[in-house]
Computed example of a mutant assay.
Amino acid sequence: MYELLDIFFLSFHTALILFNLLGWIWKVTRRWNLYSLLATAFSWFVLGIWYGFGYCPCTHWHWIVRRRLGHTDMPSSYIKFLIQEWTGFSIEANIVDAGTAIFFFLALGISIYLNIKDYKKK
């Protein structure tokens, strides 16, 4: 059961991250992309007040599953984990965190801009 949950979280969380980064490209998904980015920001910055900056429920639940599977040396960054999992490369956490922030705010800015532009067209 935990093996299936591990695969589910790996697939779902990866897809969610890719949607956050690229969902603004297609007009039909732009509004949902903005909602997803805002939910991510809420999790990181508001829930992060209580659970730690950058808190993500998906990461939290996935780490519970992975601990049950015997994985004990999990990085604090899910993006660092994905890079290691998908490519085998280990990149310094501060570089991954900086890249994550840059790409997140870039995607958020583009999504806000395009959603406003689409709204004004209506």
Rank of each mutant, 00 (worst) to 15 (best):
N20V: 03
S36F: 06
F42W: 14
Y55G: 02
S111L: 02
I110H: 02
T72D: 12
W61H: 06
G54M: 10
V96S: 02
V46L: 13
Y35T: 07
P75E: 00
F9T: 08
T59F: 00
R67E: 15
L37P: 07
L38R: 02
K121T: 11
I79F: 07
G52W: 08
W50C: 01
Y51T: 00
T72Q: 15
V28C: 04
I91Y: 04
N115C: 15
G70Y: 09
I7T: 08
Y55N: 03
I64Q: 04
I7P: 01
F9D: 10
W50N: 01
T100W: 04
I64D: 03
G88L: 05
A98S: 08
W44L: 06
T40N: 08
A15Y: 04
D118E: 03
S77T: 11
V28T: 09
N20D: 13
A15K: 02
W50Y: 09
C56R: 00
S11Q: 10
F12Q: 13
L34S: 05
G70P: 12
F103D: 01
H13V: 03
S111K: 02
T87I: 06
F89V: 01
K27L: 03
S76T: 11
K121Q: 10
G52C: 09
E85G: 02
C58Q: 04
E3M: 05
W26N: 05
L82R: 04
G88P: 06
L37N: 06
G99P: 01
S11F: 15
V65E: 00
Y2F: 13
F105L: 06
I116L: 14
L114V: 01
W44V: 07
V46K: 05
S77L: 14
F19M: 12
L38W: 11
